[in-house]
């Protein structure tokens, strides 16, 4: 059992919790803890990347419940690379932020750490509902970071961003609901297995679920025509947060890649290659 797989989530969480606990201490303390957390994260994700480059795909069963019953984290080359990039970018953005922007509002560092946790979770999880949970962590923390510092145009841009993504989150649940009600499972690998043998009368529903989910992910990845939240949100947030957002949109791209090669991949029977007609114009 390689605990390194779950560590990219737990370290920002621990760091964030410590910062919240020390809410009344000086900024210096928050900065130091936050930077230390990011540094450790870089080291750990680096090790994870190193392992996964040579090794096989690693699966971590949380709570020791075998998949598909429990939740799993999956570290393969791509996800390990993505968490490493997140950690690296996170560290740099933080170094930039501690020069001035972090004191413009409250709770910057805690939110920053939770944001990293959410991103890493979205990269690593192998369970579609758990993906929803991590999306929400990532998004809520990002709402806070977008609004960090305040000001009229920032509030307006942040409000649009938050409300759109709230609609998106509800739509996500509809998609997950359809998948569960027809396939009876939530584990992504298991979904892929069951989708391959889905009876033809259910195919249209499954395809609808896949496309609805795609819409949600496209919103996160800011693909055309769902990119409209992006220019304003980027434009009015602080530089370090905007830089971190660059990787958040990659979460959307990553998930599209994951979900649509794994679950709706070429072997998925009636629901195979769902995206081909949709993706090209959107790129």
């Amino acid at each position: 059992m390689n605990h390194l797989i779950v560590a990219p989530l737990l370290i920002p969480l621990l760091t964030g919790a410590i910062i919240v606990l020390a809410v009344n201490r000086y900024h210096f303390f928050h900065r130091a803890v936050s930077l230390a957390g990011c540094l450790i994260l870089v080291l750990i994700t680096g090790t994870l990347l190193f392992q996964s480059v040579s090794g096989p795909i690693q699966v971590y069963a949380l709570g020791n419940w075998a998949p598909p019953f429990g939740i799993v984290m999956v570290a393969d080359r791509l996800s390990a690379l993505m968490v490493f990039m997140t950690a690296l970018l996170g560290l740099f953005c933080l170094m930039y932020a501690v020069q001035d922007t972090d004191t413009q509002g409250k709770n910057f560092h805690a939110l920053y750490q939770f944001q990293l946790m959410g991103i890493n979770g979205a990269f690593l999880t192998g369970d579609i509902f758990n993906l929803f949970v991590f999306f929400e962590i990532m998004l809520l923390a990002s709402y806070g970071l977008v609004l960090h510092g305040g000001g009229g145009s920032r509030t307006r841009a942040g409000m649009h961003y938050a409300m759109l993504n709230l609609i998106g989150s509800s739509i996500f649940l509809i998609g997950v609901g359809i998948l569960y009600s027809l396939l009876g499972t939530l584990n992504m690998a298991d979904l892929a297995v069951r989708i391959a043998v889905v009876p033809p009368e259910n195919a249209a529903l499954i395809r609808a679920a896949g496309l609805i989910l795609f819409g949600v992910f496209a919103l996160k990845a800011a693909l055309v025509p769902l990119y409209f939240w992006l220019p304003d949100t980027y434009g009015f947030t602080g530089a370090p947060v905007a830089a971190l957002f660059a990787i958040m949109t990659k979460v959307g791209v990553y998930v599209i890649l994951r979900v649509y090669t794994l679950i709706f991949g070429p072997h998925a029977g009636a629901a195979a290659n769902l995206l081909a007609p949709w993706l090209l114009p959107a790129a």
Partner: peptide, 20 residues
């Protein structure tokens, strides 16, 4: 999670009203 989000949006609406 929905509750957390709604609470956030309510406060955000308040803040937006105050700032804009």
């Amino acid at each position: 999670i929905g509750f957390a989000m709604i609470a956030f949006v309510v406060v955000l609406a308040l803040r937006a009203h105050g700032e804009l």
